[in-house]
Design a protein around this nucleic acid. Structure first.
Lengths: 133, 133
DNA sequence: TCTAAATTTGTAATCATTACAAAAATAAAT
DNA sequence: ATTTATTTTTGTAATGATTACAAATTTAGA
């Protein structure tokens, strides 16, 4: 995928920092926190500021090409995927897995007459690998 | 329900503050933040400290009689209900509704061999009342 | 009543995030 | 090509929620 083009299409001027940040999100798909993004890019962009990371992610969210997940009370994570999917966090190794779910099955009985804009499904436990150790 | 007894049963000494805080959680069922709990009780308990609210909620969670939900990135809310249920937050009036869902329907395909400890379902949108205004 | 333990409280420290203004970079205009 | 305006980035300070911690208070036991 051409990232500069992707940004432009969504009304975001493709600056160097923005391209790098989106590239990181998109290629790693590791649901990073701001801090993780910053630490991984500051080597390549020595002048990078955390403010820029915050600003850029906020812009991405405004323009609809990034979403957030808050699976742990104290850390916001970012995701280049914006389709409805859930997340599993392994409490042992910390890894986060995407999970698919069918929203039709979730809670529709109670939500008659409500307008649903966004759903988040978060699951915690132990992953396959950690269990077999 | 006898709150002092409920606390005792769960290995929590029923101090005045603890009873009042649990009573608030249990009777209001309004998924309050720490700040909301504090502001609502400080009239009745003038010496109350926010530290006590934090300490007490942490204790309740440790002992398994309270759970948390983080439907908004920046505010942790508390719930005396500990059974698996989801939450809908109206982005217009701010009200939070409990919603039931059947976890069997959520994500089981991907989670083969995983050990699930906790699930959270968060939905945002507009509630019935706000839509008909 | 005295002593020890548990609980509560207030304040300071921490940490993520936001606000904001200056600096740097980019684009537009002459 | 130079100046001017606009956008983006950066660094620092401010904010706000939460945690750490030690002193004060309360409760329980001897």
């Amino acid at each position: 995928m051409n990232i500069a083009q992707h940004l432009s299409t969504h009304d975001i001027k493709p600056s160097y920092q923005r391209i790098k940040i989106y590239e990181y999100l998109y290629e790693k798909m590791n649901h990073p926190t701001v801090d993780v993004i910053y630490k991984n890019l500051v080597g390549e962009i020595p002048t990078l500021s955390k403010s820029t990371v915050y600003n850029t992610l906020k812009l991405f969210i405004d323009k609809g090409i990034t979403s957030t997940l808050t699976i742990e009370d104290n850390e916001v994570r970012y995701d280049a995927a914006i389709d409805s999917h859930g997340h599993f966090k392994c409490t042992s190794c910390g890894a986060i897995f995407d999970i698919k779910y069918d929203f039709k099955d979730v809670a529709m009985n109670k939500l008659k007459g409500f307008e649903v804009k966004e759903t988040q499904v978060h699951v915690k436990g132990k992953c396959n690998q950690c269990l077999t150790k």
